[in-house]
Amino acid sequence: MIRINEMFKKLYKISLVVLLAIFLLYVFNEIHDLASKSYLSEHYISKGVQETGAINLVTSVLYDYRSFDTLGEATVILTASAILAFLVPLRKVAMHGTKFLIIVHQTMIFIVPYLAVLGSYLILFGHLNPGGGFVGGVVLALIPIVMTITYCIEFSEYKFKPNIKTLLEDLGSICFIILGLFGIVTGSNFLASGQSNLGLGNPGELISGGLILCLNIIIGIKVGAGMAKIFNSLIKGE
């Protein structure tokens, strides 16, 4: 009797999911061929390099044409980091650890400079090659996280103090808004780097594209500090 009851419940759940799949199949017939009738992406492809000065079209969409959405996304990371910092208890908690062999310590000496160089390359060349501020920030945040895992959490907080991480994250948000007000000072819209009268430079060099290079560096620092604080809060909240 109990077996038949459980099998009936499972069949009911599977039939609900199958109904959802059939409904989605009807909806997907409409959006089958959407990319060939869009006017806005034609404009971005044909006039993107001339108006903004960045070769990477995804970076020019994220940091010049739609930079207000990037401001909202930076706020989401700030909110998540603040929520997690509230839920951590005030007293010190103990973290389990072991003594590792010398292989692990030698590999740490190998890996940390490699991660630093890779993160800096992805941030600085974000407008010429695939990459950008967000990916570079996540790779830079790996260094405190790997140090927390192999050594204990007190050593990692002795090297990278939590006050400095909070300061970097707050400075990132404030500098983003100040660079946006720079567009109003020169007589154009908020967060405008292609429309204002900044010199754009030659497309294809390192220093080109107006405000895009500075925005990349600021977003990279902010996301890196935020991710490292989220990881430390999750470990301490036990």
């Binding site: 995804v58 969409v61 994220l62 739609r66 967000f134 989220i230």
Partner: peptide
């Protein structure tokens, strides 16, 4: 199309948070 790739980048970060 470059617009949909920018939206996907935003969506990855929000999902992680």
């Amino acid at each position: 199309d470059p617009i949909s790739q920018a939206l996907a980048l935003t969506s990855i970060v929000i999902g992680g948070s």
